[in-house]
């Protein structure tokens, strides 16, 4: 960002005190940055080190060399279902994101644009669900899902989380601000609500869809409590549940555990770096935890 964006009285920074303050700021920020990056570094360091190097007495910043062979060791280890759980995570997160976007966007559009006698009541019923975070009601949700026979079943991981009142609310707000002239034009061309939605509204809203998709995907990938409750069998573990099982008890080689953690974080870190601006705007505008 350009220097003139910084808000300061003219000439202020040129005084010795001003220069000192700037130096102090950069110093503080640099120390903080090192601390913030340290955990990422530790994941990589431990993931690509040998067991002896991790548990050695003298703590060294860099092990002798990067042990790439750890990757093969991790993926071949029959005791550690890491590949399976990564695949589960991909399936669950993608399905959850697609489902949430589909149902919530349709509902948001209906609530925003289709006049109907009971529309207001339905809207309030959606709003009411925002008062109680889903995590707080995991016991009741478990009861329903177990009745459906979806324990240790990917459906149980995906379907109950596909109906987000908050996402529907965000879509409704977005569609309220969508330029009505575009829809009018489609209407004149003889398209109904359905045709207008799919041919005009959605293609012109891809940015918004993408922003919600990214945020939903990250939330889904990192979620833990619900996958822990539902994924009781190893076959239904997501990567977070698999990692947790080894963190909280079952013995495993430490370097394999850290490497698995690195593999689970990598896709999101890449996504973050690539979509930085997008996410920052999304976080600031919606207040959604990524």
């Amino acid at each position: 960002m350009a220097d003139h964006d910084v808000l300061r009285p003219v000439g202020y920074r040129r005084t010795p005190a001003g220069i000192l303050a700037t130096v102090a700021r950069y110093l503080a920020l640099s120390v903080a940055a090192v601390l913030f990056l340290l955990p990422f570094y530790l994941v990589l360091r431990n993931g690509f080190a040998t067991e002896q190097e991790i548990t050695a007495q003298g703590w060294r910043l860099f092990p002798d060399r990067v042990h790439w062979e750890n990757i093969g060791e991790l993926l071949d280890d029959p005791a550690v279902p890491m590949l399976r759980s990564l695949v589960n995570s991909v399936v669950v997160s993608v399905a959850q994101t697609v489902g949430q976007l589909l149902f919530a966007s349709l509902a948001g559009y209906g609530l925003a644009r289709i006049p109907y006698r009971h529309s207001k009541k339905v809207f309030y019923a959606v709003l009411a669900t925002l008062m109680i975070p889903a995590a707080v009601t995991f016991v009741p949700s478990f009861v329903v899902v177990s009745t459906l026979g979806w324990i240790s079943d990917l459906r149980g991981l995906v379907v109950p989380v596909m109906f987000s009142g908050f996402t529907a609310f965000l879509f409704r707000q977005y569609f309220l601000a969508f330029p009505a002239e575009l829809e009018e034009a489609a209407r004149i061309d003889g398209l109904g609500h359905w045709g207008t939605y799919w041919r005009i509204v959605v293609p012109n809203s891809l940015n918004f869809f993408a922003a919600i998709a990214v945020i939903t995907f990250i939330g889904s990938w990192n979620s833990f409590l619900w996958p822990l409750v539902i994924g009781q069998d190893q076959s239904a573990w997501t990567v977070q549940v698999a990692l947790s099982t080894f963190i909280t008890g079952q013995s495993i080689n430490i370097h394999e555990l850290f490497l698995a953690a690195a593999l689970s974080v990598l896709p999101l870190v890449l996504m973050f770096v690539a979509l930085q601006r997008f996410l920052v705007r999304g976080a600031a505008e919606t207040g959604i935890k990524g």
Partner: peptide
């Protein structure tokens, strides 16, 4: 700097727990 401080948001609590418990 903004990116560096925002980056941990990409990390799950599970992975953070691993680093805090078994490394730091």
């Amino acid at each position: 700097f903004r990116s560096v401080f925002f980056l941990p948001t990409a990390c799950s609590y599970v992975v953070a727990s691993l680093v805090w418990k078994l490394s730091i």
